[in-house]
Amino acid sequence: MWHLDIDIAGALLIFALRLADVALGTIRAVLVMRGIRPMAAAVGFFEILIWVFAISQVMSHLDNLANVVAYAAGYSSGILLGMFMEDRMALGVVVVNIVTPNGEDMARAIRDAGFGATGLTGAGGSSDVDMIRVVSPRRRSRELLALCREQCPGCFATVEDVRCVRGGFSV
């Protein structure tokens, strides 16, 4: 059934092709979710082009266990690579919600850093709190969270993905 004569170059090619197509698939899915349609379609074209070549290599040498293992390993590695790439690309916009007891100082520091900030008053579990909502490019969200920790180490913050932004402070 399984043929153990291993073609290392063929297995590595299959691994690399699968790594690339799955990583592109992850990026495509994120682009679709963010509403970036033309780029999602272009990435999808190359994703499937690579996949067709990869699957043809596996199917024409299905008796070679190394090819099947390389295909599966490329798939799982491609997921990790795609997640890494998507994180580095930091596409899109987020809303950062910050809950803090000193909202005025926090909002001023956020605005001084070039972000727009909307302050709200709320009731926490044990005291009144201020909530600050900031719409930010995702690529700057780490900078914003670091600023919040610097201003108020005990503040509570959440980050939410946003599909569309209209009006307001420019991001």
Rank of each mutant, 00 (worst) to 15 (best):
74 G>A: 03
15 F>L: 15
169 F>G: 09
161 D>W: 04
163 R>T: 09
10 G>I: 03
134 V>N: 13
127 S>Q: 14
81 L>G: 04
66 A>H: 09
78 G>R: 01
40 A>Q: 01
119 G>S: 09
80 L>R: 04
129 V>E: 14
122 G>F: 07
5 D>S: 11
15 F>E: 06
116 G>S: 06
149 R>F: 08
48 I>A: 14
63 D>C: 02
143 E>I: 02
39 M>S: 04
95 V>M: 14
70 A>L: 06
144 L>P: 12
49 L>W: 02
128 D>A: 14
15 F>G: 08
18 R>K: 00
133 R>A: 14
58 V>D: 11
11 A>W: 01
38 P>K: 05
162 V>A: 15
1 M>K: 07
70 A>V: 07
11 A>M: 01
87 D>Y: 09
109 A>V: 01
11 A>L: 00
122 G>C: 10
116 G>Y: 06
18 R>V: 03
26 T>A: 09
142 R>H: 13
162 V>M: 12
170 S>V: 11
59 M>P: 10
140 R>C: 06
32 V>C: 05
37 R>I: 05
15 F>W: 06
1 M>R: 00
57 Q>P: 09
21 D>C: 01
93 V>E: 06
64 N>I: 11
117 A>M: 07
65 L>Y: 11
120 L>G: 03
82 G>I: 05
126 S>V: 12
2 W>C: 03
102 N>D: 15
86 E>R: 01
131 M>D: 03
14 I>W: 01
25 G>V: 07
154 G>L: 12
80 L>K: 03
30 V>F: 09
64 N>W: 04
120 L>E: 10
99 V>K: 06
98 I>G: 09
99 V>F: 13
170 S>M: 04
113 A>W: 04
166 R>A: 15
56 S>W: 07
77 S>L: 13
27 I>H: 01
81 L>E: 02
154 G>R: 14
114 G>D: 07
67 N>D: 10
30 V>T: 12
157 A>S: 15
21 D>E: 13
161 D>A: 15
12 L>K: 03
6 I>N: 09
145 L>F: 05
16 A>I: 08
83 M>D: 07
41 A>T: 11
48 I>Q: 04
125 G>C: 05
